[in-house]
């Protein structure tokens, strides 16, 4: 149960500073494979920074990041790319290329597997098998009819689902999602989280998702991590988190001692 082969991510004493601003201070954390974790807390608590460090997109100022047992700081460029291929990231800003069609944006999920040639191929004449796979991924987010639509024409919720389809096409072992539902209405938000939860249940992918909507987090995530001012405020099973704790987490006036 506690063997390192079950470990997806581990942070050891991680601190991240941007200039004078301390985004994370002394955070230690372990995420096992197949978990679905909700990351909650007020704005500026360091959720995005934490996710980006887990994804190997930021280097901590102090402490160590281990992904699948590998120390990120010790990886070569190629190894780092391999680690990133195995971790999918859904950004708050989605980061689709709006000038490209949906299909190209989904195909971009696998750019980590090839070089310049693959990129040219993606833009000009993608492989038939890949297109079929893209279709399947879009089906899982119920968006097949938009496959050849231009991404700039999508609504916020549709763009969000394309971002998920891109991660599905990438087929990573873990998915990190940064505020994936902040820009969509409550009904869409529920749909999206159900999609994520189903992926977690059906494929056993590790999922870490940062959320503002606490009720959604409690309903879909097995474990909740509350963050405040760059520190972990609580970290326990979703059903064990009390309302009083949540109130304290978001209570701006209350002293945190």
């Amino acid at each position: 149960m506690t063997g390192t082969d079950r470990e997806a991510f581990r942070l050891e004493g991680v601190t991240k500073r941007f200039g004078d601003f301390v985004a994370l201070s002394d955070v230690s954390l372990r995420v096992d494979r197949g978990e679905m974790i909700g990351l909650i807390g007020p704005s500026g608590a360091g959720k995005t920074t934490l996710l980006r460090i887990l994804a190997g997109m930021l280097q901590p100022s102090e402490g160590r990041t281990l992904v699948g047992g590998h120390m990120v700081a010790k990886l070569s460029r190629l190894e780092l790319r391999a680690v990133r291929r195995a971790t999918g990231f859904i950004h708050q800003s989605l980061d689709l290329v709006p000038e490209l069609r949906v299909v190209s944006n989904v195909l971009a999920g696998r750019l980590g597997f090839g070089g310049l040639w693959e990129a040219l191929r993606l833009l000009t004449w993608p492989r038939r098998d890949d297109l079929v796979e893209v279709h399947r991924c879009l089906e899982r987010v119920a968006l097949t009819e938009k496959m050849y639509e231009r991404s700039s024409k999508l609504s916020g919720g549709q763009a969000q689902r394309v971002a998920i389809a891109r991660v599905l096409f990438q087929d990573p072992t873990a998915i990190l999602a940064d505020e994936p539902v902040s820009a969509v209405d409550p009904a869409r938000a529920r749909d999206l989280l159900e999609i994520l939860a189903r992926i977690n249940a059906e494929t056993g992918k590790t999922i870490v998702v940062s959320l503002h909507a606490i009720d959604l987090a409690r309903r879909h995530c097995g474990r909740l991590i509350g963050m405040r001012e760059g520190r972990i405020f609580f970290d326990r099973k979703a059903e064990e988190v009390t309302d009083a704790e949540l109130d304290r987490l978001y209570d701006l006036g209350g002293a945190v001692t």
Binding site: R128, D129, T144, M147, Y148, R150
Partner: peptide, 18 residues
């Protein structure tokens, strides 16, 4: 099945706005 999917992709591509 993949063949059906490929047909679907082709028809989507044909109808793409340009």
């Amino acid at each position: 099945n993949p063949a059906e999917r490929w047909q679907a992709v082709r028809s989507l591509r044909r109808d793409a706005p340009r």
